[in-house]
Simulated assay, not measured.
Amino acid sequence: MNEFPPVVGRFAPSPSGDLHFGSLIAALGSYLDARSQQGRWLVRIEDIDPPREIPGAAQNILHQLETYGLEWDGPVSWQSQHHARYREILEWLISHRNSYYCTCTRKMIQQSGGYYLGTCRTQGHRATDAALRLYQQSPVTHFNDLLRGTVVCNPQLAQEDFIIHRRDGLFAYNLAVTVDDHDQGITQVVRGADLIEPTVRQLTLYQQLGWQAPDYLHLPLALGPDGNKLSKQNHAPALPQQNLQRTLIHALILLGQEVDKEWQDFTVRQLIDEAVKQWQRVKIPINSTFITTDALSTF
Rank of each mutant, 00 (worst) to 15 (best):
D18Y: 08
D265I: 10
V43K: 03
Q202D: 05
I253N: 10
H63D: 14
G39F: 08
A158T: 11
N144F: 14
Q278I: 13
W263A: 09
L248S: 01
E274W: 06
Q37E: 12
D47P: 07
Q280I: 09
Y116Q: 09
R133K: 02
R52K: 14
V140P: 03
C104A: 08
F21R: 01
Q123D: 10
R35H: 03
K229M: 02
G118I: 09
F143Y: 15
G118A: 08
R281F: 10
T103G: 03
E274P: 00
Q79F: 01
I94N: 01
G118T: 09
G185K: 06
K277N: 13
W72E: 02
F162M: 04
Q79R: 04
P240A: 04
H142R: 15
D194Q: 04
G29A: 10
L219N: 04
N2V: 12
L230Y: 12
R52T: 07
N287V: 12
L134M: 12
P225R: 03
D161T: 03
G56P: 02
V200I: 14
Q278D: 13
S231Y: 10
R121M: 01
P55I: 10
S138E: 14
F299C: 04
I286N: 15
F11C: 00
R35F: 00
E88W: 11
P198N: 07
T247R: 06
L209S: 03
A12Y: 01
S23Y: 06
Y216I: 06
L296S: 02
L132S: 03
E71P: 00
S297G: 10
L205Y: 04
G39L: 09
Q111C: 02
R281G: 08
A222Y: 10
